[in-house]
Each structure stands twice: as structure tokens, then as C-alpha cells.
Amino acid sequence: MNVIRALTQNKVAMFGFAVLLLLSLIAIFGPMLYDGSPWKMVQRPFIPPFANDRFLLGTDTLGRDVLAGLIYGARISLLVGLVSTVIALLIGIPLGAYAGYFGGWVDEILMRFTEVFQTVPSFALAVVLVAIFEPSVYSITGAIAIVSWPPVARLVRGEFLALRNQEYVLAAKLNGQSHRNIILKEILPNSLSPIIVLASLMVATAILLESSLSFLGLGDPEIMSWGYMIGAAKTVIRQAWWLSFIPGVAIAVTVLALNLLGEGLNEALNPKLSGKREH
């Protein structure tokens, strides 16, 4: 397919893809291969990076292995990012599809509903939700999903609104196809490309959100995450800046890789909208 070819020719996007692939491998197999619990105190605290052969990135304020923390953190970041995005898509796509396809008062009600969620400051809402339902990996994922679906709904609605009067959709209506068939087989496949692009960017945003929540102390107390590591090192930033520096770089690299891949996907899937057809 041309999309895949266009994507593989885009070096920047492929770089992002390679980084993500590596991160996924680390997230999946890292904990099996690198035997270190992120919570166990293994050495004296504040060993700087590269000073100790066994603990490559040193130890934190309580003598825990920083590298182990990073590996486990990759797992939770990617997991929360992916799962919350999937949930957000599961909420946003049907809502947007119904609003855009049926229009009228269905659209009016669904879009007012979406507007409320879009107006609310999303990070503040996530904080409130996680705080009230007690921090856990479930409440965090759920809260992130709840604050991220409105853009999906709006995008899908826009696509459906534009496509529902396309002549091939009208032809399907004349054929006597059911609404379900028209939505799923005629319109949805043709509006997938912008959804895919948005989804890749949403994973990035979700990872940022998750790290911000853990930084504020709203992380799952059972799980080591990058945001938590930075938050825990905040008070000792004068003595051991690397403790907050290293996990931050991990977050930035992951999010950057996702953004690069997302832009590459955008160029490959929507050649008209991206900068490819320059004058």
C-alpha cells in the first residue's frame, strides 16, 4: 500500500517508530531480563549515574535502582497511554458518528454534552477525578480517557457531517442499506485516516497527563512511574539533579517519538493537508 511506502520513506517518522518499538520491547521484556525491583532498596542512596557498574543510572533518595524504575515506568506509561486512548476512541467515535450522521437534535444534544467536557479544564478534571476515586492505575486510565475523548467526538462528527452527503453514501441509502451498514461500512472506513493520526497524538498527550498526575502524587502507589520519580526527587533537586532529569528525558523522548510518528502518519494518510503538495 502507498501509505506504508510513504511512511517508510519518511525518515523522521521511521525514527519515531524505531524509538517506540524499542520502548515497547523494553516495556514488555525489560522487567523479565533486568532483575531489579523498582521499589527495593539495593544500595546506598544518591549514587550518581555511571558511578556503579551494577546500577548504571545510580540510585535514588532511598537507594532504589533508577534504571529499574525507568524500565517499569516505560511499562506503565505506554500501557496507560494506549489503554486510555482506546477507551477515549470507544467513547468518542460512536458519539461523533451518531451526532454527525443523524444531525438535528441528536447532534445538538451530543455536541452540547461534548462542549461541556471540552470547556472544563481537562487536567484539573483529571486531578479531581483521580483524587475522588482514589489513585489507582484504573482511576488514572479512566480519568485520562474521560478528559481526552471530546476531540475525537468532534473530529469524527466533522468527518461524518462531511461524508454523509457524499454521493456514494446517498447511493447506499437508495440501495436500502441499514444505518448501521452505512455508518460502519461506507463512512467509517473513509474517515479512519484522521482518526489514526489523532489517536497517535492522543497517546502522547495521555503519557504527559499520566506523568503529570503521578508528579502531583496522584499516581498508583503500587506502581513505579516516571512522573512519580520526578516528583519524589523534587525536594532533592539541589543535591541530585539527575534523579529528576533522567526520567524527564525518558518522557520527552517517548512523547516526541509519538508526535513524529503522528506527523508522518498525517503526511502519509492526508497528503492534501500536509506540506507535501507545496507550490
Binding site: 502522547a204 504527559l208 506523568s211 503529570s212 508528579f215 512522573g227 520526578i230 523534587k234 533537586i237 539541589r238 539533579w241 529528576s244 532529569f245 524527564g248 518522557i251 520527552a252 512523547v255 516526541l256 508526535n259 513524529l260
Partner: peptide
């Protein structure tokens, strides 16, 4: 723009404090 877009805000704040202040 890409890099700043990808950097966690709180981390950037801490690094800025570290660099310009400490």
C-alpha cells in the same frame, strides 16, 4: 516547537529553576 511540545511542563519548570535559579 516539536521538542517543547513533547516536554512535560513540570519537568521543564524544574529544570528551568535548577538552571536559572540554583
Amino acid at each position: 516547537a516539536l521538542i517543547f511540545y513533547a516536554t512535560p511542563l513540570f519537568w521543564l519548570a524544574m529544570m528551568a529553576a535548577l538552571f536559572f535559579s540554583v
